[in-house]
Amino acid sequence: MTPRAGLTADRVTRAAADLADRIGFAALTVSGLARELGVRDASLYSHIRNLADLRARVAVLATAEMADQIGAAVAGRAGKEALAAFAHAYRRFAVRHPGRYAATQIALDPEVVAASPGHRRTLELTGGMIRAYRLAERDQVDAVRLLRSTFHGFSHFEATGGFLHGRDVDASFARAIDALHVALENWPSHDKEGTP
Rank of each mutant, 00 (worst) to 15 (best):
127 G>T: 02
156 H>Y: 14
66 M>Q: 15
108 L>S: 06
55 R>P: 03
19 L>S: 07
124 E>G: 08
59 A>Q: 12
46 S>G: 10
128 G>E: 11
137 E>R: 13
25 F>L: 06
107 A>K: 11
36 E>N: 12
14 R>Q: 14
127 G>I: 01
133 Y>M: 08
76 G>P: 08
77 R>H: 05
151 F>C: 05
78 A>F: 04
141 V>K: 03
89 A>S: 11
98 P>W: 00
42 A>F: 03
98 P>A: 02
146 L>K: 04
133 Y>E: 03
96 R>C: 10
79 G>K: 07
55 R>E: 08
32 G>W: 02
22 R>W: 04
41 D>R: 15
126 T>Q: 14
154 F>D: 00
33 L>W: 09
18 D>N: 12
140 Q>G: 02
123 L>T: 02
34 A>K: 07
76 G>Q: 08
58 V>I: 13
118 G>K: 05
94 A>V: 04
104 T>D: 08
156 H>V: 06
94 A>T: 05
101 Y>G: 05
52 A>I: 08
140 Q>M: 13
14 R>M: 09
153 G>F: 05
64 A>D: 14
47 H>E: 12
33 L>D: 08
52 A>D: 15
114 A>K: 13
68 D>K: 14
152 H>D: 13
124 E>S: 13
114 A>G: 03
64 A>Y: 07
83 L>W: 03
136 A>N: 02
19 L>P: 07
49 R>D: 11
20 A>G: 09
128 G>V: 06
12 V>M: 12
74 V>S: 01
94 A>P: 05
129 M>C: 06
83 L>H: 09
95 V>W: 03
152 H>S: 04
41 D>T: 13
119 H>T: 06
55 R>S: 03
144 V>E: 07
23 I>P: 05
57 R>W: 01
65 E>V: 12
45 Y>D: 07
111 E>P: 00
90 Y>V: 00
129 M>W: 03
75 A>R: 15
112 V>S: 04
111 E>Q: 13
152 H>R: 12
31 S>F: 07
96 R>A: 15
96 R>Y: 05
15 A>K: 10
74 V>E: 01
130 I>D: 03
91 R>T: 08
125 L>W: 05
50 N>K: 11
